[in-house]
Amino acid sequence: MNIFRLAGDMTHLLSIIVLLLKIYATKSCSGISLKTQELYALVFLARYLDLFTDFISVYNTIMKVVFIASSLAIVWCMRLHPLVKRSYDKELDTFRHYFLIGGTFVLALVLNEKFTLQEILWAFSIYLEAVAILPQLVLLQRSGNVDNLTGQYVFFLGAYRAFYILNWIYRYLTEPRFTRWIACVSGIVQTGIYADFFYYYFISWKNNSKLKLPA
């Protein structure tokens, strides 16, 4: 474990806490894409299959449980909670995310470390995570104004993978045979997708103005 990876995991945890706070405090999920939340739940379920087979560390196990439980709780909240589900922007959240699931799964069948179910699902979860934010970014562009907590949620979500890139560089330099090409290339693509959001987020922070994404 290095400082970059710890910072990345904590930033990821923070993004989930900010999202839970927004939903709990405002009893509303307006501006949040249910499709992105469903994709994240799928990412964690596909990636943490080894939760019960490979014990890495207490930290690793606890974080996996927290990520799976929180992503399922958010999906449950947005679909079933009587008060919250009414504020879901159903007509704005129209990204055809099934194409993302199909495309990334086919890619995982072709590009994986080993043609075993666990490795294919791991690669699938890595590719899917890279594109999972797209429905959310599209929804933000459509809904025009972005409330602070939602903006912070997306910002932390993008920042966490940027820390992971620093972690992979650090591990590549310090561990003799560390290569994790699938995660690293996919992580760079994932962080790149946030680039324009980061730009508009920085502008709105600099001008102290409301975050607006061009339609």
């Binding site: 990876r5 995991d9 990821h12 990636r47 080894d50 490979d54 890495i56 690793n60 974080m63 996996k64 990520f67 470390e113 080993k114 490795e119 791991w122 992971y164 972690n167 591990r171 561990e175 003799p176 045979r177 560390f178 290569t179 994790r180 995660a183």
Partner: peptide
């Protein structure tokens, strides 16, 4: 280490 397929990262 990370090469024997064990995914030690989240």
């Amino acid at each position: 280490n990370a090469n024997n397929g064990i995914k030690d990262e989240l």
